[in-house]
Simulated scan of single mutants.
Amino acid sequence: MRGRKITSADVAARAGVSQSAVSRVFTPGASASPRTVQKVRKAAAELGYRPNVIARTMASGRSRIIGLVVAYLDNYFYPEALEKLSKLLQDRGYHVLLFMASQTAENVDDIVERILDHQVDGIVAASAGLGSELSARCRAAGVPVVLFNRSQDDPSLSAVTSDNVAGGRRVAEFLLAGGHGRIAYIAGWEGASTQRDREFGFLAGLARGGAALHSRAAGEFRLETARTAARVLFAGPDRPDAVFVANDHMAFGVMDVLRHELGLSVPGDVSVVGYDDVPPAAWPAYDLTTVRQAATRMVAETVAILIDQIEQACDEPRRIAISADLRVRGSARVPAGWSR
């Protein structure tokens, strides 16, 4: 067979099975007996056969490709979550194509057009939003879209997030219980639903406890911008005694400024709380009190919705907000009755 392309017919002949049996072995979700799988894979390895994925998907009418739109990967939360998402989709027989968009969605139109050109079966938009016109275009093309860690007002879009409102409210309750009276907030990017909902819950929690926000600055979910925000907030004599930072990525920069530039003690002079519970939050260098996003559950719900819409033609939009717990560590004063 040297000099020519090995085919499924060659594998079938070597394994002593039908060509359709070879096809079933290499088709995700198709059934074949363990003995048949073993024989076919052994013959394929001996012959150096690789199935033609493109031909198979063209025959099935599905590409089994999911377009994944991501605005930025600086935040530790996204690489970890996207690894889980990619693996779970691969386990279901799908392949992932990653597309980078700007955080402000300036180039999302072009990116969605490119995604649709790849004949994807579905789209997951993580940390990036789609306008109503774009979502309508995807629906017209029969391509379901699920938003991950982001929501929009468009009622036709499915979305999976943590319960950001409840998480923000929990932070306010925690800081007030710790006796803080000058509580600040460093916001993320103003156009993000995660930012909006976390701040809404936080302010509602403060108001419920009879307190008001002492000061506020915008960090835009960017490390250096958050550092600048911290310098501004803590420059004067009436500095905050606690600060809630809209995600851990920014909180690390804020803590570095407080400790190493301004000489403040965390939590002796100021308590710091973040949101996400990314791996470095538990490192001794930060020991950050933070709201934990359940990435594994969020990924599982996202994939379940997407697969239902692709394989079961379930077009009913679903909105899921998964509860988020406060992880109490050493960056904030621990109120009486709260355990670490």
Rank of each mutant, 00 (worst) to 15 (best):
T296E: 15
E199H: 15
R297D: 13
R208V: 00
H260F: 15
I305S: 01
F244L: 02
P284W: 11
R182N: 03
D277M: 11
F244E: 01
R182W: 09
V278E: 10
V272N: 02
D248L: 01
G274Q: 06
R292A: 15
G236D: 14
D248H: 08
G236R: 12
G178A: 14
R292H: 14
P280W: 08
G178Y: 00
P240Q: 09
L306K: 05
R297S: 14
S193G: 13
G210D: 12
E190M: 14
A204H: 13
V303A: 07
H260W: 15
L258G: 00
A229P: 02
P237T: 10
L203V: 13
A230M: 06
P279A: 12
V278T: 15
A300N: 11
A192V: 05
F221A: 07
D287T: 12
G209E: 13
R198Q: 08
D238F: 07
G191R: 10
V254W: 03
R196A: 14
T289G: 11
G236C: 09
L175C: 00
A211R: 15
V270N: 05
A246E: 02
R227L: 12
E261W: 09
D277E: 12
V266A: 07
A229Q: 02
D287V: 08
R292T: 10
F202W: 07
G263E: 01
Y185T: 03
V245A: 03
A304P: 06
R208C: 01
S193A: 15
G268E: 13
V303L: 06
D248V: 02
D276R: 10
E261Y: 10
A295Y: 09
A184Y: 01
V254L: 10
L206M: 09
A204R: 15
Y275K: 10
A282V: 13
H214Y: 04
A282N: 12
E301Y: 08
H260D: 10
G205L: 03
F252G: 00
T289N: 10
G188D: 01
T302R: 01
A177P: 01
G188N: 04
A217E: 12
Q195P: 00
T228Q: 15
D269Y: 11
V291I: 15
H249R: 09
H260Q: 13
A230F: 03
V257H: 05
E220D: 15
Y185L: 14
F174S: 00
G263T: 06
A212D: 13
L176F: 11
S193L: 08
G274Y: 02
G274P: 08
A281K: 07
P284R: 13
V303K: 00
F244R: 00
T194N: 06
